[in-house]
Simulated assay, not measured.
Amino acid sequence: MSTRILFLPPDGADDARLLDLDDGGRVRAQATLPPGTAAPDAPDARRTVLVVPGGPVRIEQLPLAAHSEAQALAAARALLAGRLARPVALHVVLDADHGAALRTVAAVDADSLRGWLAQAAALGLRPDAAVPEALLLPDPDAGAVHLFDAGDRWLVRGDGMAFSAEPGLARRVLGDRQPSRFDGGFERLAARALQPPLDLLQGDFAPAAGGRRPSGRRLAWLAVALAASPLLLVAAQALRLELAARALESRAVAVLDAALPAAQGGAATAGTSDGQAGRLRALREPRAFAAASGALFAAVAARPGTHLVELEYARGDRLRALLFHRDARDLEALRGFLRGDGWELVEGGSVDVAGGLHTGLVLEPAA
């Protein structure tokens, strides 16, 4: 039996690289696949792993203390959505190290992942797993940095970093850090892909026999998330609304520009514009809620021992929450975390409860 490892190039017009490995990681066959060609047959291949270009994939290590994987994933999505200024639908996945203090998290534009899967399909392959190329380098020891020279780009993995970039940019990112060269070529990288540390094909992208998972399976996962934490489900829904609201707002502005050109003027137009402006403000409300709740969920997830008890938001109002925490140091840590993201935490009254305190909070944009 063999495993097929498909390396996609950063430029879709370049050749892909396909290696067939046995269970011990030894190369049995390899081929270069120009665009439009079909991969050679491999009757004994039981699995295909897709190695995707690392440039479009953001990889981080985040503290995601949570009671379940659903909570950890929701916290990661909220944290990354607050950091990445991209008007796209992010696909976020976690590594399988459930008990680790720091989890490896990868985020990529969902359309980019669909494009890579389409490239694999055009070569006649359907991947069972997908991994960013930089994560095929060894796990870094404290302070160590591993580097693989792929010619047109460097793959780098170190303590708190994992990325792919053209050599000049990679040198600037590394600064004074001296990397250790990872030798052995793509064959050695392919051997590490037999057990990838993280699989991008999760959630809606998870493969299943005969096709994608049926919608009922996805609904079951949503039910599990709901049972685990209604508040986290609200945050995830808010983030989806934020992304959808951007598209809706752009569409609404285009319609208004066509229907109410500036040349019309007059009192009637002004009155109509006021009404339309109100509708646009309503469109922006999900974005305001998503930004505030995403920042708050990320801050709470990064502070072990704290969790949200209640969450309240009314149109045009600030975000209000009830927080469980142990002492004043938790509040200061949350305040510093949120201030770094442009939010001000206003503290209300506290009530003693078993094991800690319940404190009312208001979140508003920093002045």
Rank of each mutant, 00 (worst) to 15 (best):
G294M: 05
A299H: 10
E310N: 15
L308H: 09
D352M: 04
V346A: 14
G316K: 14
H358I: 01
D327C: 11
R279P: 01
Y313D: 11
L296F: 07
V300S: 00
F289A: 08
D327T: 07
P286M: 00
R318I: 02
Y313I: 03
A298P: 01
P286W: 00
T359A: 09
G336K: 11
R329K: 07
G349Y: 00
G349N: 07
G349F: 07
T359S: 15
R284I: 00
G348Y: 07
L361F: 08
G294W: 01
L319S: 06
A282M: 03
F337R: 09
R320Y: 14
G348R: 03
L283P: 00
A328P: 06
G356D: 05
L323M: 10
A314F: 10
T306A: 12
F289E: 03
V346F: 04
R284V: 00
F337I: 06
R335I: 04
R339C: 11
L357E: 05
F324H: 12
V300H: 03
V309S: 15
R326M: 09
H325Y: 04
T306I: 05
L311G: 06
A328W: 11
L308K: 10
D341K: 05
R315T: 13
R329Y: 03
R303L: 13
R329M: 11
L319H: 09
A282Q: 10
A333C: 09
A302S: 15
L319W: 09
L338E: 07
L338S: 09
R339H: 12
R329V: 08
S350M: 05
V300Q: 03
P286Y: 00
P286H: 03
F289Q: 05
R318Y: 15
A301K: 02
L357A: 04
S293C: 04
G360F: 06
A302C: 12
F337K: 10
R339G: 07
E332L: 14
E285W: 04
A354C: 01
E347K: 11
A328Q: 11
A295R: 02
E285Q: 14
L280C: 03
G340H: 13
S350I: 08
G356A: 06
G360M: 05
R329Q: 12
G360Y: 05
R287C: 00
A290R: 01
R281A: 09
D341E: 14
H358L: 12
L280H: 02
D341R: 13
G340L: 12
T359G: 11
A302G: 11
